[in-house]
Amino acid sequence: MNPQEKSNPSEGFQVEDPLAVFTAFSQEEIRRWRSTEPEFDEELHQEAVSLVLGRLKQRLDTAKR
């Protein structure tokens, strides 16, 4: 295969937003725990998610400044 004929390897290089990744992951985890854990404390978990999102946003804002 001629390398020059290859498509640009940078196409589709996925750089994920950590905030979005965490949000999606945490919601999926909570959904799973909610459906499997008999004594699941959703309020506690949502508080943890809010804490992380708040602190992450703060860290990212600080890094941008």
């Binding site: 990744v21 985890e29 978990h45 508080e47 943890a48 998610v49 804490l51 992380v52």
Partner: peptide, 14 residues
């Protein structure tokens, strides 16, 4: 601690 433990679990998973 409970909140942070959950947060850490979620963060490590993410």
């Amino acid at each position: 601690i409970a909140v942070r433990r959950i947060a850490c679990t979620l963060l490590r998973g993410a």
